[in-house]
Write a protein that binds this DNA or RNA. Structure first.
Lengths: 166, 166
DNA sequence: ATAAATTTTCAGTACTATTTGAAACTTTCA
DNA sequence: TGAAAGTTTCAAATAGTACTGAAAATTTAT
């Protein structure tokens, strides 16, 4: 396999991986392209490499900046903006974890919390309270765990936990 | 908020949560319904409660069985099949982790592995090798971590890790 | 201030994923 | 064995999501 083909495959795979985890394919592909780019790329570069429209490129670059996965880079003498991805994979993991925790986990924990005092003595009510309570407990623990591992740095955490489980 | 409303909200929320993480909405909703059901439900029950077609109900019940999240239950004197969800949330977490690891993480690790020996001395080749290598390392560690925590039981793991990070 | 370069927005279009519903198939029982 | 009850399949329809492209807005340079 040559470099060109490998790059292509990587971009496709990262896109598929992203979309299996609820991240839109183009956003993941733009991210992949920037991850393996030795130098910052312009919007035009992204459009050409991925064959996507200006609107799409722009939207996804902004989204990646929102997620703290990509930064704008100014080149002196250039008017255009260039974009560069964070290359430290542990920082990448931290950013993604942080964002998804905030977007999806926290709202769920909050909702489950409101279910704690649903009244009723029927089997339905009992089963509902038990399940939502247990899920609240699980998601809260997970939330705490992620919060701590994000703070302490994922790299250290994964190493420590892997050791713990040896 | 009364029970009926709360149940409805929970089913919707679990559906939304699932689809944000790449699990189809109906599958997650069927799962939610079974999670809070005090007794096993028939396909008809699921169809009525969620207002979905027979085909859809059948397909998603089978998918949930595939994921080890739901089991068929036979009721004596009944010809129909009934379905019951695993109620232990830690086992639920374990099943989901296992399945997603197998479906998405393992193939990615495998692909990244094939990139290890891409040739070339250009900045592009160097950047590509560096990034795919680092990702291979990260995903392998994650894979190992999940494998171990699945084996050892997620509950114990989360408690231990949370303590470790106190 | 003007105009060129660049970025952003968004209505319409294209694409993908999900769902339906009816036919085919299977199982059970009289 | 026949037929009723129940389950599964899958082509077509629908719904949901993402993308395009051109216009509007913004920025920069003279």
């Amino acid at each position: 396999m040559d470099l060109k083909e490998a790059r292509e495959q990587f971009i496709q795979a990262w896109g598929a991986f992203g979309s299996a985890w609820g991240i839109n394919r183009s956003m993941a592909q733009v991210h992949a392209l920037l991850l393996i780019a030795p130098e910052p790329l312009s919007t035009e570069d992204v459009m050409e490499e991925l064959n996507i429209s200006r609107g799409n490129a722009n939207m996804n670059l902004r989204a990646l900046i929102d997620w703290n996965l990509v930064q704008k880079v100014l080149k002196s003498g250039e008017r255009r903006e260039f974009f560069s991805a964070e290359k430290d994979v542990w920082k990448v993991a931290t950013s993604i974890t942080k964002e998804r925790k905030k977007r999806e986990l926290e709202p769920l924990v909050k909702l489950l919390d409101t279910f704690e005092e649903i009244p009723g003595a029927s089997p339905e009510a009992k089963a509902f309270r038990k399940m939502t309570h247990d899920l609240h407990d699980l998601t809260t623990r997970l939330d705490t765990l992620l919060e701590k591992s994000v703070r302490r740095d994922v790299q250290w955490f994964v190493k420590a936990a892997t050791t713990l489980l040896r």
